[in-house]
Design a protein around this nucleic acid. Structure first.
Lengths: 250, 250
DNA sequence: CCCTTTTTCCGTACGCCCTACGGATATTCT
DNA sequence: AGAATATCCGTAGGGCGTACGGAAAAAGGG
């Protein structure tokens, strides 16, 4: 699932903000709407993974011909942009309160979002679709950080670093949780298949720190639990660090 | 570029660790080696992006027929696994010294790695290929953290969270640096194309924190600089937070 | 009421993708 | 010389995204 690129940016923006073109009243009435197409694409990607989200199958799930989609969307890349922004708009970003609690709320929401839409991880986040979802998120994070007491330049950097960590860790966490549901294979089964690795390839003498950590029980949790711990510890550390910077700045 | 999955894990592991199959001496001599195939695939993806890395084009760049590759590699997914691990093996992970300096070294190395191989970001990192590159990285990080004074369970979580942040931020940074070289479009040109956004779609009243940060000069740097700042600030905050945890644990 | 205009619908076709299959080819062993 | 073995690779099949252009369905104008 690659994101936009070639197409006319103005057209993509018009779609992201649902600003309808001037309609003359004439012409054949549409069988589907942009909203329905995006929803069908999201549902398909949720259910069967990003590779199943093909123009053919989206159209089929709506009961229209494949090429009909192209009357509503310039191409697949733009549809992916719309899916991403639609997903981001699902975030509940209402709460106010202490800035730290707000960021933690964003983190929880993001985990839930990736759990619903694990295909989000497969989409690049640079030069993102400038839609309402992205703006709402950035606005929420900047509003929270602005009460922490950082200068504007550092606020923007702190917000970006939080997005990088939270979205990355949430994607990891969600992918572990859902990998077995989609692939039909649990983490345990995955490791069991790779038991040969420990038997035939892993050399404790070459990787002493891994062997030691293993020996000390550092890997005793399953992969999903480990990802959750990494998320919690990392977020706590990051917020502690940012709070300390704000304190110093005061 | 999707990663492995269907194939026999034992076969993939054998390839990752370059453990040659028992050779009888008989048979037609190979025109290409596994090493050359992986190198050609990496070079192609470096030069023209992940989408250009097709079996057809890799084979053509080696002067062999497409299907010849399948004598050396089970399929494209496994080739991607091999590319990822080969790239990871490029990291220089020799230094010893204070744990914090070691992690910062890993961060710098990772930025350089993503600058050389920006396609790394498009590859999923869950259930990764268990090759020498991955193990060397984990061993390095765990060795560094083990001198910080964290319990084994937290060490593993701290290592995971560092990987999430550093690899994510490095991918962002590198993609900004290289986006223009590959797409032929600078960040400025990208924003210029989207000037309509600010003119026609952005509503300052709806996103006051963004408008305020803009007003305060929070977005005055270009995208590449901003990504670099986010990387530095985030890593510093994360390491500060981890150091504080270790301190408390002492 | 027909005819033009406008808009959407969608069947066909093209080029590219991955890869299953099986025959051709080149080497070694007996 | 012939059998055994491993690699090379042309062909073909099923999917993919989408350019093209005609069919279809509405509204407006005569």
């Amino acid at each position: 699932m690659e994101r936009s690129g070639g197409g006319d940016p103005r057209e993509t923006l018009r779609l992201l903000w649902r600003s309808p073109r001037a309609r003359s009243g004439r012409g054949r009435p549409p069988k589907v709407s942009l909203e329905k197409i995006v929803a069908a694409a999201v549902a398909l990607a949720d259910r069967e993974g990003p590779d199943a989200m093909t123009m053919d199958r989206v159209a089929a799930s709506l009961g229209v011909g494949t090429m009909t989609l192209y009357s509503h969307v310039p191409g697949k890349a733009e549809l992916v942009d719309l899916m991403v922004d639609a997903a981001r708009q699902e975030l509940d970003l209402t709460p106010s309160g202490p800035w730290r609690a707000r960021i933690e709320h964003y983190a929880k929401q993001t985990v839930a979002l990736h759990e619903r839409h694990p295909w989000l991880r497969t989409v690049s986040t640079v030069r993102p679709p400038l839609g309402p979802g992205l703006l709402a998120r950035d606005n929420f994070l900047l509003a929270a950080l602005s009460t922490a007491g950082l200068p504007a330049a550092e606020m923007s950097a702190a917000s970006d670093s939080l997005v990088t960590f939270v979205d990355g860790a949430a994607a990891n966490l969600a992918e572990h949780g859902r990998a077995e549901r989609l692939s039909g294979q649990s983490d345990e089964a995955w490791w069991a298949e790779r038991q040969v690795f420990w038997e035939s390839f892993f050399d404790p003498a070459r990787y002493p720190a891994i062997a030691q950590t293993w020996h000390d029980g550092g890997f005793d949790r399953d992969a999903a639990e480990a990802a959750a711990n990494a998320f919690d510890l990392g977020l706590r550390a990051l917020l502690d660090g940012i709070a300390a910077m704000a304190e110093r700045n005061r």
